[in-house]
Each structure stands twice: as structure tokens, then as C-alpha cells.
Simulated assay, not measured.
Amino acid sequence: MAFAPADGATLDGVDAETVRAALKSGDPFPGTDGFAGAVDGVLVRDVLGRRPIFVDDETDGWNFDPTELTAPRSLPAGTVRDDDGERRVWTLPDPDPAPSSEALDRVTSAVRERTRAVDPEGLAVAFSGGVDSAVVAAGVPDAPLYVAGFEGAHDVEAARRAADAMDRDLTVVELSHDDLTRAVPELVAATGRRNPMDLSIALPLYLVAERAAADGHDRLAVGQGADELFGGYAKVVDPADDHRVDADTVRGARRETMLTLPAQLERDVLTLRAAGVDPVAPLLHDRVVEAALSIPDDLLVADGERKVALRAAAAGVVPESVRTADKKAVQYGTYVSRELDRLARQAGFKRRMDDHVGRYVASLCDLEYLPPDER
């Protein structure tokens, strides 16, 4: 097997001894923020795929950066690859729910410990004004906050209100159409993603990270994982009547969303690294994930409120107005999805056309258009 990362590093996120111990024990949560790379002649990727790694089946090479390979393919999360092929060695546990008081104590302890353990050196915080990013920001009280969005966007206004309530400095990255038309081809090249949803999520993250890097920061703290771990999606509230999930229980629907994390995190990590920063995601630390897995239904969703356990853990840590604030999905809260649609229509790709934004993205990147099921 060829070990050929461009920078010579062979492990990302952890030391070799930790990986060896996790391989020996089969423990999916050995106390890390995720890992990927090569150790003792095998390639590994942690159970949630928090660190991306790619293989090239044509050359038997691998890299952390897919652009360094001719035919990159993601190594699946929880997998080991060696000369005998690939096999899954870690799977996401599915424990029975713990009693509510015990589960909440574990979540509160884990969230507070891990957010306060973040090294503030060179750090900025991606901040939307919601409870996820506010809890992360509270753990690093001296780190500057950054938000991106078009004029009047929900996330910008929410971030301003929350930063004022927390008495924190906030940099607003006001977006323009020129920003989108420049960044779309860069993101497609860096991530290999070209579907409009992925791009609408990645674009504000990329543009915030670019600004933070230009201001001298080399690390960006994010609230990634909170919605998946703590039941932040609307489809988790009443899954039996929601066609977007197969599960018919709240915990089952939450598990489905957790299993989407490897693909999402691959996109987000590649996005941030392309912008010049390394991601820091304390809510995705093993200790937080393990605590979240034992949350009962009533600490995920109660009386229409989502992320009940996380909001409870935030009590006394962030202002009440921030702890209870509603949050829009980033692609909508920043208006990026709306403005990408507007640009597509201005370029002649009307809504009556199938996948009109996807067609616009392909034209912007000088790529052959591929229908959604062929990307």
C-alpha cells in the first residue's frame, strides 16, 4: 500500500498508540475528536468519519486531500484497509436510553468539559447566534466570533443579538453575488461536491473561514454535530408521520441523522481546510457523542422543543435568550440558497427546468452537467 500524503503526515487527529489500543479493544470511542490515516501498515478512519481520508483503487495510494489522487474514494467511517482489503472494525453503538436525570448529567458534564477544553490559540468561532455555536463560543471567551450572510439574513441578525447578549466581539462577513460566483468553483474543486444543497451549506462556512484566516486565525471552532446528536431536525419530532426518515421513533430517527455525519463532515472539513483553517468541533468529541447516545426521547424532543438536553446543558452558560433561540438551517439563515437560486435564474436557468441550480453550478465550473442520480 502506498503511503503518500503531500505533507508526509501519516495520522490525522491522534497518536499511533491510541489507534492501536482502539483496534485491539474495538472501542469506537477511545477519547478523541476523530482520526484517520496510516498506522502499522493499515489505513483507519474513526467511527463517525470526523477526519476524511481517501483511497485510490487504481494506484493503491491514499491521501487526506482528494485532489492529490487520480480517482479518490472515501474510506468508509469505522473501517480498516490493508493488503487483505477493507473491513469495518468500529460501529456506532445503539445503547438503551438511560434514566433522564442520569443522561442529562452525563451530557451536561461532557458538553461543558469539552467546550472548555478547546485551546484558544489561533482560534476563531463560526457563530450563528443559535445554542450550538453559543455553547462552543462560551467555552473560549476570548475568541472572536464570525458570521456570514447576505444583508438582512436571519443568521446575521441572530448573531448580532446573541453576541451583544454575550458581550462578545462579532465580525460580520457580508456576502455578495461575486463571493458566490468566485467560491462555487473553488469549493467544487476542493470537495468534489457539486449538488446545490451541499454547496449552499458549505459556502457560508467557506467564506467565514476565509475571512478568519485572512485575519490571522488558523483554527475555526464550529458547532457541527449538535443537530444530529441532540435531535435538532424537524424530521425527528414526529418520525412516524415524516416521510424523510424510515424510523418511527424519535431515537430511531435521531440515529438515522447521526449516520449521515461521515458524508457531512467530509464536506465540512474539506471546505474549511480549503479556506485555510483547521476545524475544531468540541460537540463531536467521543465523550459528548457517547453521552448523547443514551439520551431518552424526552431529552431529544419535548412539547415541540428540540435539542432539549443540549439546551438544558447550556443553562447558566449562555444567556437565556440565546439558549432558547430558534435556528434556521445555515443555507436558509444566511440567504445563500436563495441567492444561488437567484443567480441561476439570472443566468437563464429558470425554475421550470429540472435541477436549474445544479445546471447553473455546472456551467459556472465549466463542467458537463450531471443529473442528481449520476453525481
Rank of each mutant, 00 (worst) to 15 (best):
G348D: 09
A240T: 09
E339G: 00
P196D: 00
F127I: 05
P120Y: 10
D341Y: 11
K327A: 01
D132T: 03
D215C: 05
R112D: 07
V237A: 14
S74A: 15
Y335E: 09
A162M: 04
G78S: 09
T260A: 14
P28M: 07
C365F: 00
D179S: 06
D297P: 01
L203D: 02
T115E: 06
I201C: 02
A347Q: 12
L199V: 00
D341H: 15
V357R: 04
A315Y: 11
A6P: 04
G85V: 06
P120V: 12
R244D: 13
D354K: 14
K327M: 04
P262Y: 02
T79C: 14
G231I: 05
Q346T: 12
A253G: 13
G37Y: 11
L75A: 00
A240I: 03
G26E: 09
V118G: 03
V289P: 04
D119L: 10
T171I: 11
D105C: 01
D248L: 02
H177F: 05
D40C: 07
R51L: 04
V14H: 05
A71H: 15
A329C: 01
H356D: 10
Y369D: 05
R255S: 06
A214S: 15
D366Y: 08
L23H: 10
A9L: 13
F54I: 03
R45Y: 10
L340T: 05
S101G: 08
D303A: 14
A209V: 14
P282G: 06
D298R: 14
L69T: 11
D198F: 09
